[in-house]
Amino acid sequence: MEIEIGIQNVARAVTFTTDATEQEVSETINAALAAHEPIVLRDNNGRTFIVPTDSLAYVIIGSQTKHVVGFGNL
């Protein structure tokens, strides 16, 4: 699952891939927002991302797309 997090007053978004499901990521973010606590997510490489909820601009949760390799019939 690919995650993109926009942070206020930061030019570039934070993008990473995680094995968590869309529902797990959404629940983690919603729980942190409701409790006014930092959002804590882990990527596939074992890195931890901590984003203060006050600084959150947006979150895009998307599935990984499989890239087609080779030539298709036109």
Rank of each mutant, 00 (worst) to 15 (best):
Glu2Thr: 08
Glu2Gly: 05
Ile3Gly: 02
Ile3His: 00
Ile3Val: 15
Glu4Gln: 12
Glu4Ile: 08
Glu4Leu: 05
Ile5Cys: 00
Ile5Asp: 01
Gly6Glu: 00
Gly6Lys: 02
Gly6Met: 03
Gly6Trp: 01
Ile7Met: 05
Ile7Trp: 04
Ile7Ser: 01
Gln8Tyr: 06
Gln8Pro: 01
Gln8Asn: 14
Gln8Trp: 04
Gln8Lys: 15
Asn9Gly: 05
Asn9Lys: 14
Ala11Arg: 14
Ala11Val: 13
Ala13Phe: 04
Ala13Met: 02
Ala13Leu: 04
Val14Tyr: 02
Val14Ile: 14
Thr15Glu: 14
Thr15His: 07
Thr15Pro: 02
Phe16Gly: 02
Thr17Ala: 14
Thr18Arg: 07
Thr18Ala: 13
Asp19Gln: 12
Asp19Ala: 15
Asp19Lys: 07
Ala20His: 06
Ala20Glu: 04
Thr21Gly: 15
Glu22His: 13
Glu22Lys: 13
Gln23Met: 11
Gln23Gly: 06
Gln23Tyr: 11
Glu24His: 06
Glu24Ser: 12
Glu24Asn: 05
Val25Gly: 01
Val25Lys: 04
Ser26Asp: 05
Glu27Asn: 14
Thr28Asn: 02
Thr28Pro: 02
Ile29Cys: 01
Asn30Ser: 12
Ala31Ile: 06
Ala31Gln: 14
Ala31Asp: 10
Ala32Pro: 03
Ala32Leu: 07
Leu33Met: 09
Ala34Leu: 11
Ala35Ser: 12
His36Gly: 04
His36Gln: 08
His36Glu: 10
Glu37Ser: 13
Glu37Leu: 13
Glu37Gly: 03
Pro38Tyr: 04
Pro38Val: 05
Ile39Ser: 00
Ile39Gln: 00
Val40Trp: 02
Val40Pro: 00
Leu41Tyr: 00
Arg42Gln: 13
Asn44Arg: 08
Asn45Ser: 10
Asn45Leu: 10
Gly46Met: 06
Thr48Asp: 06
Thr48Glu: 13
Thr48Met: 06
Ile50Arg: 13
Ile50Trp: 03
Pro52Leu: 11
Thr53Cys: 13
Thr53Arg: 06
Thr53Asp: 12
Thr53Glu: 09
Thr53Asn: 11
Thr53Phe: 09
Asp54Val: 15
Asp54Met: 09
Leu56Pro: 01
Ala57Asn: 12
Ala57Gly: 14
Ala57Ile: 05
Val59Phe: 02
Val59Gly: 02
Ile60Val: 15
Ile61Thr: 06
Ile61Asn: 01
Gly62Trp: 02
Gly62Arg: 14
Ser63Asn: 11
Gln64Thr: 15
Gln64Tyr: 08
Gln64Glu: 14
Gln64Asp: 12
Gln64Leu: 14
Thr65Val: 15
Lys66Tyr: 10
Lys66Pro: 01
Lys66Glu: 13
Lys66His: 13
Lys66Gly: 08
His67Gln: 10
His67Ala: 14
His67Arg: 08
Val68His: 14
Val69Ala: 13
Val69Asn: 09
Gly70Leu: 10
Phe71His: 10
Phe71Ala: 12
Gly72Pro: 03
Gly72Asp: 08
Gly72Ser: 11
Gly72Thr: 07
Gly72Asn: 09
Asn73Val: 09
Leu74Arg: 07
Leu74Lys: 06
